[in-house]
């Protein structure tokens, strides 16, 4: 098992009722699988915000240890003490 720290921002924190949490996860879990698990845990409206069907929502931004996590990177296994940041759609300036 590994420990992964997850932080929720914007409306996602409202949907989960928490800003951050530390999860114990199977050693080979990927970023994509983590999102499916979180969607299952928190249900709607969190699920509808982070998923698009079985895939991840195009409007979700994920950072792993402050590096953007997307494309093939989402299939790579997470590592112990990874820090994940989740952002819903946000833009502007």
């Amino acid at each position: 098992m590994i420990s992964v720290h997850v932080r929720y921002f914007g409306i996602l924190a409202g949907y989960t009722g928490k800003k951050h949490e530390t999860l114990r996860l199977p050693k080979d879990m990927s970023g994509h699988q983590l999102m499916l698990r979180l969607a299952s845990t928190y249900g709607e409206p969190f699920r509808g915000t982070v998923l698009n069907g079985e895939g991840l929502s195009d409007h979700l931004r994920i950072f792993r240890n402050e590096q953007s996590l997307h494309g093939e990177g989402l299939r790579a296994p997470l590592e112990d003490e990874d820090h994940i940041m989740l952002f819903p759609a946000v833009a502007g300036g």
Partner: peptide
């Protein structure tokens, strides 16, 4: 997100 946080919603990202 825009309604709830305005442009400050960008800070964390």
């Amino acid at each position: 997100g825009c309604h709830q946080f305005g442009t400050p919603g960008l800070v964390a990202l």
